[in-house]
Amino acid sequence: MKMKVVPKILKNMVSKPITTRFPHESNPIPDGYRGEHSYDVDKCISCNLCAKICPNKAIDMVEAPEKYKEKYPKKYPRVDIGKCCFCALCEDICPTGAIKLTKNFFLSTFNSSDVIKDPIPAKEVEDRG
């Protein structure tokens, strides 16, 4: 088969490019994408299942900060996103739906402490305290 080059070039000159110019526009992310975790401490029952099923041991059960000890006396999951493989097993096993994976994939950072997600975020602690 001979490749008809000239008509193809002309067609490609007028047609839209196949790529998207990423920071300015982005392909839609489908529902069910496995991205950053969202965690609701009020739904959590501290059953420890997510920490047990996590293949990479990215989830560690920690106590709440001093100010919140009264309201949240048990241990809650702290997610280390640097270790996470985004398998969503924690979401599947969670009996109350407290931990969920969101569509957010903008996770790169220059600060290594940013990858650790505390059950009650440090920022929130500062704001309220």
Binding site: K57, D60, D80, K83, I116
Partner: peptide
């Protein structure tokens, strides 16, 4: 801190 989680589990 990040590696100590592997101990004792």
């Amino acid at each position: 801190d990040r590696e100590s989680a592997y101990f004792g589990r």
